[in-house]
Amino acid sequence: MSEFDGVRFLHLDSIWVQGAMRVKKPEKLELEYVQRMMAWMLWRDTREMTQGQAVQLGLGAGALTRFCRKQLKMKTTAVEINPTVISANRHWFHLPDDDDRLRVLNEDAGQWVADAANWGTAQVLNVDLYDHEAAAPVLDDEAFYADCRHVLADGGLMTVNLFGRSASFARSAARIAKVFGTDQVWHLTPTREGNTIVVAARGVEVPTREVLEQRADHIEARHDLPARKWLKLVRPLPMNVIQQLHAASAAAASGE
């Protein structure tokens, strides 16, 4: 851990920041990319926005878990493979003990989403799975994203943290699009640090611009998140992702 200017940072045995918390405002989402992980709210009906279960794969510094449980008052489950990260969250990042609205599981995220007992149980799934090297997602193949889609209930939404300026972004986004469908996947333009959030939906009717703007206003007023800015940053899948998707489909069809 490190601390600077009132913000406490989590590191996994490296210089890379794996999460952050403003000490005097532990429920506030401090990092910009973590705020953007909440962009799924734009695709949910305002009346149902905070209903159901939110699941985080990868606990980090617990920011999303604390926010979903405390601010949104959602039933919240976090799946984290590293017991030291869970312990650090309990001692240093204001993560409360488990209760009727919170479960923190020391389990492998890949195995958890593959367990059919968890399918159809989440309205929201936040995926942020990086190791201490922070080079690429630890779980990033089609089978994993297919299991993630299974975990979502109908109308559910997933956000994934990817590095948008990395050559791996198009490959990862294409895998997500192959599983969810190109009409159910969007991305936000990269942050200054290069984090690109991908949003994927399971059977969501795309809202009109007017509805999206109304939801953005509601999110800003109710939850103090920069949703109007998100709306300006939302894009369909870039052409290089579509091209990778078509190339992969053609290769599969030809038996390569």
Rank of each mutant, 00 (worst) to 15 (best):
E205D: 12
S254N: 12
T121Y: 00
G6Y: 08
E48H: 13
D154F: 04
K28D: 10
Q184A: 11
R101D: 14
N195P: 03
W112M: 06
G19S: 11
R66C: 02
K178P: 00
V234R: 10
V127E: 03
H132Q: 10
D99S: 06
T182E: 15
V138I: 13
G110I: 13
D115K: 04
D141L: 09
L105A: 15
A216Q: 09
G181E: 15
I81N: 02
Y33H: 12
L42Q: 03
R103P: 01
T208P: 01
R175K: 15
N195A: 12
K25Q: 08
V55R: 00
D147I: 03
K25G: 02
I242C: 09
V198E: 01
R101V: 15
I197E: 00
Q71G: 00
V17Y: 08
M21T: 04
A63D: 01
H218T: 12
T65W: 02
V7C: 10
V127G: 02
R228V: 09
R222I: 07
N126V: 14
N106S: 10
S87G: 06
V7F: 07
D147G: 04
N82F: 12
D147C: 10
G181Y: 14
M37E: 01
R103N: 10
K232Y: 05
A134W: 11
Q18E: 11
G60A: 06
M158G: 03
